[in-house]
Amino acid sequence: MESERRLDRYVSMVLRAGMLLSVAVMAIGLLLYVLSPGPADSIPLDRLPEELMNGSSVAVISLGILLLILTPLARVVAAALVFAADREFRFVLASLAVLAAITLAIVL
């Protein structure tokens, strides 16, 4: 099944890219943290850009964790796009249901 293989290719690409990116950012952050340890409290999302600008190592680590959390969502979106391109609207709907269910879980 050609379409199944294409779906596999794109989804695994997103998963691998997400993994490499988040590993790289987390590893750099941890390295910076080891070189100059400080308070390790978690940083609120709205202060993350500012703290990154200040060169905070914990902010770099938090960014890596955020990228990791976003990766499964990115792969749902990637799959939805492939389903849409293949005109498999049932599964576009299923992918949207996944995103809706997660949103619901976060909001509640």
């Binding site: 987390m26 941890l30 390790a40 978690s42 999302l45 890596g64």
Partner: peptide
Amino acid sequence: VAGASVLYVNGLVPPVLAATVAL
């Protein structure tokens, strides 16, 4: 993801420990 984002936003994911675990 749902559980993790709720904890993350509420500052309940300890960054250094979580990143070490993730690696």
